[in-house]
Design a protein around this nucleic acid. Structure first.
Length: 199
DNA sequence: CTGTAGATCGTCT
DNA sequence: GACGATCTACAGA
């Protein structure tokens, strides 16, 4: 049920970001398997998106991962404290990525609680890119991890998500992006319908 | 409940 | 040398 390599090669990263809502992300950290169902994402459309680290072809040691073929992880440190997890998309040399901003805890609940220090568990609803990585045990050391391996991977679920319940809004915390700051590149599963995610 | 200061460090100028 | 795809705690109302 893992998402196939071709899934990440689609040339419209905005559609991928939307489609990722409802997929399940797994991590195996030191033998501890935890997972969460994706409920919030943001698309970063590489070359033509001022909000993207790779805007206008910026190519540095940090952004190099984004130019790899879709299907690997881009994890970087934000504000000196938080690891932010992105899924690299599209073909080689096209630096598209999707930021995972929220999940609903699914497998390994006790471990997830422990990682979150038993605070803000909120019935398993985890909002905020920094908290998602904390809950799943993802750190900057997982940068460039191949998403088809056995450390971090994504799976399809039986019940697909109904598009009607996916809302789009502008992205968060990117005021520096000028006109692109108003693009509806953020996708959220309707908070009022989130109970349909119950197993 | 709303608003804001402080934490903390890699990355780019 | 400045700042960020953030989060938390705490102050004040």
């Amino acid at each position: 049920m893992k998402l196939p390599p071709s899934y990440y090669l689609h040339n419209n990263v905005v559609e991928i970001a939307k489609d990722l809502i409802g997929k399940e992300i797994f991590t195996n950290i030191d033998g501890e398997i935890t997972s969460g169902i994706i409920i919030e994402t943001e698309a970063y459309a590489g070359l033509h998106d001022q909000a993207s680290h790779a805007f206008a072809g910026r190519r540095t040691a940090r952004t190099e991962v984004m130019y790899q073929e879709g299907g690997c992880a881009y994890v970087y440190l934000c504000y000196g404290i938080h690891a932010l997890f992105n899924i690299v998309c599209n073909h080689q040399n096209i630096p598209d990525a999707v930021l995972i901003r929220g999940v609903k805890a699914s497998r390994g609940l006790e471990m997830i609680k422990k990682r979150l220090n038993n605070t803000n568990f909120n019935n398993g609803l985890i909002y905020g890119p920094g908290r998602v990585t904390k809950a799943l045990g993802i750190s900057v050391s997982h940068n460039k991890t191949d998403l088809h391996g056995n450390t971090i991977w994504l799976e399809k679920r039986k019940s697909s998500t109904d598009d009607i319940h996916i809302l789009s809004t502008p992205r968060i915390g990117i005021d520096y992006a000028g006109k692109d700051a108003s693009l509806h590149y953020r996708f959220v599963f309707d908070p009022e319908k989130r109970n349909t995610f119950t197993e």
